[in-house]
Design a protein around this nucleic acid. Structure first.
Length: 938
DNA sequence: GCAAGGTC
């Protein structure tokens, strides 16, 4: 059997179909992995790397005294499967194979994945024949050629990839652990360091410093408003920027009508059609349409998976000769963009445009299938249309512009104006994304004399360099060789996740800055793009067999060891520096009570609040929502009233939630509950707030004298206010319990506000779960609870209340579980059923059920049933069974009515017993009549 | 719990 292994499932699918030709390809799932078989061949796809390098076991404890961060430098490494299903399948198929072909992507990483596969294959069948096929695009032609003449795996190239893997792991893991430990950061708050992420972050830090250091310089721009036969003309002084205002003023003074045309220059300019898309070019273009890098890639991957566009991760900007451009055009004719396609077919440039990079990995991104707007939906269609139009543009002729430059004099001052009009739209006909504003000028001739309507001298300022946008950052990373086509956009997400950068455009946080500055001071290599460039150079040497993998890695290890000498020496300083800056970033401004700083505190990634830095001397604090609703950060906006920075909650995947000034928000949100205190007047409320008493909690907790003086009320009134506050506090606790309960039973979802539901319930006097259990279903429906949920919510509330009551009475939880399982739910059930029945139903001993029933009945003010011993029960049972027609099942029913023997049967009220036990009245009477010793017995 | 690189 011939086994072919590709880098991904889609490639396996397509290659199988190409190689099979007209033969049927059988698609099967084996352990969740698709296989494609025909004749004696099986094709299966990997999922990229299916094994991963890691340290050998024993290095998981970051705080180990022996296996310190530094010890990772010399730790042994292993390769462990990350996708067991695929590894198992590959090895299973290998056992049946006599020939294995590795058909992973044609780049360094593909060769490494190939080598990893080679090792997996050889591990189970050392003598199997393994070869390698290489192709740059999955087209009929390339695949046929590649498989007709298979080559060998390039072990040197794979070794180059392995060197990169090892160096990345060793540097990244050891430095990440070191700096996290130094700054006392653990869990989700670790501080990461890496060959790609750290230089990328450093770029942003550098830019931020440039912006901070930037001193704007003024300059002046001199223009005149004029017109040519009524058409407005704006002429600029040929000194585009005057840096000296005095000189600018002089030029302004010297400007005299008329504006004389001294020269007219006309020319034409070629506007080259754009080059094919590689990943970066695509991300930049999508960025102009408003797509974030990650979103653009996500959509492109989706379009690729569905066959609409080619593979979106590529460095190539030159179409390979094997790509059937005409075929693509033909396919596109079936889309809504057909008129553009037809235009291109009619105006085709002889050779498509080319970029600078020709690589072997994949063709440039191009359309591969026809789609409609309806089947894709708006967002995906926008991306698809972009790819289609870009493809069309690369086959279209260049555009041509007519340019015009006019020179004037006014007095003796030289002025100029320029214009441009599109002569031939060319590719711009089909690619409307890049800006092409025309500036037509009226016709001028030398010697024309124009009026001067106004002379303007405007003061302007030089601008600092802009912050990086996502696409600009990705372009910059590419230029410096940081990351790959597949990972660049992910790095941004990683830095955001570590809270190193935030916002749009991107900006480093103080923590991000602190980490970079510490590294620059003590381990500069990891913050510079040169590290990547050096590794690339070394990889090249390994590939050319001038050096070995181990040689390169050893050198890198030595370098890292030297960095650790420096780092360890300054460990405490580095830690303190980073920790100090973290605090700084959380400071909001003056505490309203004592005037020292308020800051945001985060507790173990779950809760967060704002507190005074003088705690415990000053206990002022403001609660914040749990971090699951967003991580609190400060923003640059400052409240004019309270001089506090605004607070924003940021959560992954959802829009940031701006709280605004935390104190304004605090006051406002507590006002509602404050007025629940009956004797709270607007006047008192205002005075309390002025004395920084904002919450019911604070009212209830305040010493009465303090309350009295703050609210300017008598001490008796203050005592009263305080006790009312305590009562409201109790109510609020119950309400919060109710809110949690409702939230659990009726999960929040789009378009249903829990706040609204709760408000409605409160307005109708429902403040506790017990209230809810007794609530009218229609009330819940009008509050916004769904039809089906109303019944279950009420039931759950009843169950909850019953459970709470029974537990409070003292029925143990383990017994309650048994009672519930037997359908005995409420305190009422305990009083209604006889303890014997409870025992039979639950398997709990009659003595115990009697004790439980006794407790419940006493608590509920109900008569306590008569105690029954086991012996009495046995005797009674025997007695009852003597009655003809009375069996085991009937006995159980009788128990529920409290009948346990002949005597209790005789004395029972037949009607009551019938209704209680469910035995028909006639039967009951019959049993009673057949009792031995009954007066009616015959 | 760590990197960067594949792919889903």
């Amino acid at each position: 059997m011939h086994l072919i292994i590709t880098e991904k499932n889609i490639a396996a699918d397509r290659i199988a179909h190409i190689l099979a030709g007209k033969t049927y390809v059988e698609v099967k799932k084996d352990g969740g992995v698709s296989t494609y078989s025909f004749n004696d061949t099986v094709v299966v796809g990997l999922r990229g790397h299916v094994v991963e390098v890691d340290f050998e076991p024993g290095y998981t404890n970051w705080r180990s005294e022996v296996n310190t961060p530094r010890s990772l430098i010399s730790a042994r490494t292993i390769k462990a499967p990350t996708d067991k299903k695929i590894v198992t399948l590959i090895q299973k198929l290998t056992k049946k194979a006599d020939h294995v072909t590795i058909a992973t992507d044609f780049d360094t990483e593909g060769e490494l994945i190939g080598k990893e596969t080679y090792d997996l294959v050889k591990a189970v069948k050392p003598d199997v024949r393994v070869d390698r096929s290489r192709f740059s695009a999955i087209t009929e032609e390339e695949i046929q050629t590649a498989f007709a003449a298979p080559a060998e795996l390039d072990f040197a190239l794979a070794a180059a990839g392995e060197a990169r893997q090892l160096i990345d792991l060793i540097w990244g893991a050891s430095l990440t652990r070191f700096i996290s430990l130094a700054a006392h950061r653990g869990g989700k708050n670790i501080l990461s360091v890496g060959r790609v992420q750290s230089p990328t972050l450093a770029m942003m830090v550098d830019r931020e410093k440039e912006i901070e250091a930037f001193v704007p310089e003024p300059y002046w721009v001199l223009t005149v408003d004029s017109n040519k036969d009524g058409e407005p003309v704006l002429a600029r002084h040929t000194t585009a920027r005057f840096t000296d205002v005095a000189i600018a003023e002089e030029a302004k003074e010297a400007t005299r009508a008329p504006l004389m045309v001294t020269e007219v220059k006309e020319g034409s300019k070629v506007d080259r059609a754009p080059t094919p898309f590689d990943t970066t070019g695509f991300i930049v273009a999508a960025g102009r349409l408003g797509f974030s890098a990650a979103n653009a890639m996500r959509i492109a991957e989706d379009l690729y998976m569905h066959g609409y566009i080619s593979y979106p991760r590529t460095d190539n900007t030159i179409y390979p000769r094997s790509l059937d451009l005409n075929g693509v055009l033909k396919t596109l004719q079936k889309t809504e963009l057909s008129s553009a396609v037809i235009w291109v077919m009619a105006n085709r440039r002889p050779v498509p445009t080319q970029g600078k990079k020709s690589t072997t990995d994949h063709p440039p991104i191009h359309p591969s299938g026809a789609a409609t707007r309806a089947e894709l939906g708006d967002e995906r269609w926008k991306i698809y249309e972009l790819v289609v139009r870009r493809f069309l543009a690369t086959l279209s002729p260049d555009a041509r512009w007519m340019t015009m430059k006019v020179l004037f004099t006014a007095g003796n001052e030289p002025y100029t104006t320029t214009g441009a009009t599109l002569l031939e739209a060319g590719w711009r006909t089909v690619y409307p994304y890049s800006d092409a504003t025309e500036h037509p000028l009226p016709r001028f001739a030398v010697g024309d004399s124009l009026p001067i309507e106004q002379v303007n001298l405007d003061r302007k300022e030089t601008q600092p360099p802009p912050r990086y946008t996502q696409s600009r950052l990705i372009q910059q990373m590419e230029e410096l060789g940081l990351g790959t086509k597949s990972t660049r956009h992910e790095v941004i997400g990683k830095l955001v996740g570590r809270k190193y950068i935030e916002g749009n455009p991107l900006r480093p946080t103080l923590v991000g800055r602190a980490v970079i500055e510490s590294l620059e001071d003590h381990a500069a290599a990891i913050t510079r793009p040169d590290m990547t460039q050096t590794i690339d150079a070394h990889m090249q040497q390994i590939k050319e067999r001038k050096r070995t993998r181990d040689d390169v890695v050893t050198e890198s290890r030595a370098m890292l060891n030297r960095a650790f000498d420096e780092l360890e020496e300054h460990q405490s300083q580095i830690g303190e520096d980073i920790m100090g800056r973290t605090v700084e970033e959380m400071i909001l401004g003056p505490c309203p009570v004592c005037g020292s700083d308020l800051r945001i505190h985060h507790i173990r990634n779950s809760s967060q609040f704002i507190g005074c830095t003088r705690y415990p001397d000053c206990r002022f604090n403001i609660g914040l929502p749990l971090t699951q609703w967003g991580w609190a950060i400060r923003t640059d906006t400052v409240c004019p009233t309270h001089h506090l920075n605004h607070v924003r909650l940021i959560a992954k995947g959802s829009r940031p939630w701006d709280i605004g000034c935390p104190l304004c928000h605090h006051i406002e949100s507590n006002q509602e509950t404050m007025v629940l205190i009956p004797s709270m007047t607007e006047e008192i409320l205002g005075r309390l707030q002025q004395h920084h008493i904002y919450t019911v909690h604070e009212v209830a907790d305040a010493p009465p004298e303090a309350l009295a003086s703050a609210a300017e009320i008598s001490s008796t009134a203050a005592e009263h206010l305080k006790s009312e506050g305590e009562a409201v506090l109790g109510l609020l606790r119950l309400r919060s319990e109710l809110r949690k309960f409702v939230r659990k039973q009726v999960p929040p979802r789009r378009g249903r506000s829990h706040a609204k539901i709760m408000k409605h319930l409160h307005a109708n006097g429902i403040n506790t779960i017990a209230d809810l259990a007794k609530a009218d279903p229609t009330l819940l429906r009008t509050a916004g609870v769904g039809e089906k949920e109303v019944t279950s919510l009420l039931m759950q509330a009843k169950e909850y209340c019953n459970d709470k009551t029974l537990r409070a009475i003292g029925v143990p939880a383990i017994s309650l579980k048994k009672y519930y399982a037997a359908g005995i739910q409420s305190p009422e059930d305990f009083c209604r059923y006889h303890p014997v029945y409870l025992s039979v139903k639950t398997g709990i001993s009659p003595d115990t059920t009697f004790r439980h029933a006794e407790m419940v009945c006493i608590a509920q003010n109900r008569p306590v049933p008569r105690k029954v011993t086991r012996a009495m029960l046995e005797r009674g049972r025997a007695e009852l069974l003597t009655i003809p027609g009375l069996g085991e099942t009937t006995i159980e029913k009788l128990y529920s009515g409290g009948v346990i023997d002949g005597m209790t049967l005789a004395s029972a009220d037949p009607a009551a017993l019938a209704s209680h036990s469910g035995i028909p009245l006639k039967k009951v009477q019959e049993f009673q009549s057949r009792l031995p010793g009954s007066s009616q017995a015959s």
